[in-house]
Simulated scan of single mutants.
Amino acid sequence: MKEIRIESKLSVYDNSNELPNHIASLMENAKEARLKAYAPYSKFLVGAALLLDNGEIITGSNQENASYPSGLCAERTAIYYAGAQYPDAKIVSMAITAGAQNNINTTPIPPCGACRQTIAEYEVKQEFPIEIYFMGTSGKIVKSHSLANLLPLGFDRSFL
């Protein structure tokens, strides 16, 4: 038997003032998108903003449905829109903010498993890592230099 060790390296910013200006602006776009979420069941609002290599900023918010599996997360809403409207553009950075509607959440909230898999697909497709910044509704912000940091041993087209 052989044992392997998998590690992730993340950066933590105390607040958005520590972010590079273009990322602070991207996070502001994510915060604005979060306020447009449709989450009448969970009351959990998520906003995402993508910076594409062509300079475009794409936003998305979670959209729930009474038939729960029919809803869509903010990250996938933004990614699929970017893929449909700008199929040749690369996603350079992603900013995510999330939290309950009536609570302040200072714990950084990473993408869910389904969103991680979707982000992984686009990293493989574009052959370029996506910087991911995530936070609660305020407070600390975590940065991962790529999705592979958040989803080690990911599943991709190489297995098909």
Rank of each mutant, 00 (worst) to 15 (best):
A39M: 04
G47H: 05
G60K: 01
P111F: 04
T107M: 13
Y41M: 09
A82W: 03
G83I: 06
N103M: 15
A78H: 01
I132E: 07
I23D: 06
I23A: 05
E64Q: 09
L50D: 01
A114R: 13
N29E: 07
Y38M: 07
E127V: 00
G55T: 00
A37N: 09
S25V: 09
V142G: 13
R116C: 15
S61T: 06
L72H: 09
F128S: 13
G47D: 04
N102K: 13
G113W: 11
I79E: 08
L153W: 05
G154S: 14
M27W: 08
S146R: 05
N62I: 00
N54R: 07
I58C: 05
A30D: 09
L35F: 00
G60N: 03
T106F: 11
L151T: 03
K143F: 11
Y86S: 04
C73T: 14
T77F: 01
E28I: 06
S25C: 01
Y81T: 14
Y80R: 12
L45D: 05
K143P: 05
S93T: 06
I104H: 09
A33D: 09
T137Y: 03
E75M: 07
A89Q: 02
L26E: 00
Y86E: 00
Q101D: 12
P129V: 02
F44Q: 04
I130S: 01
C115A: 14
A33G: 07
N62M: 01
A89G: 01
L153T: 00
D53G: 08
E121K: 06
D88P: 03
A24L: 04
A98G: 14
D88Q: 13
G136S: 11
Y86N: 04
A98L: 10
N149V: 13
S93F: 02
A30L: 08
R34G: 11
P110R: 10
L26K: 12
S67R: 05
N65L: 09
I96S: 06
Y133H: 07
A82N: 12
K31P: 11
G55M: 00
I109C: 10
G60L: 01
L147H: 09
I109G: 03
I23V: 15
E75F: 08
M135T: 15
G83V: 00
L51R: 07
E75P: 07
P111D: 08
V142L: 13
L72I: 15
Q101W: 01
I130F: 02
P69W: 04
R116E: 12
E64A: 11
A98K: 11
P69C: 08
L52D: 07
P87K: 11
K43Q: 14
P111A: 15
T118S: 15
M27F: 08
I141A: 08
A24I: 09
I91V: 15
K125D: 04
K90D: 00
A98R: 14
P110D: 08
R34K: 14
S138W: 02
I57N: 00
T118H: 10
F128Q: 09
L35R: 10
P108C: 12
E75S: 12
L150N: 12
A48K: 02
L50G: 05
I130N: 02
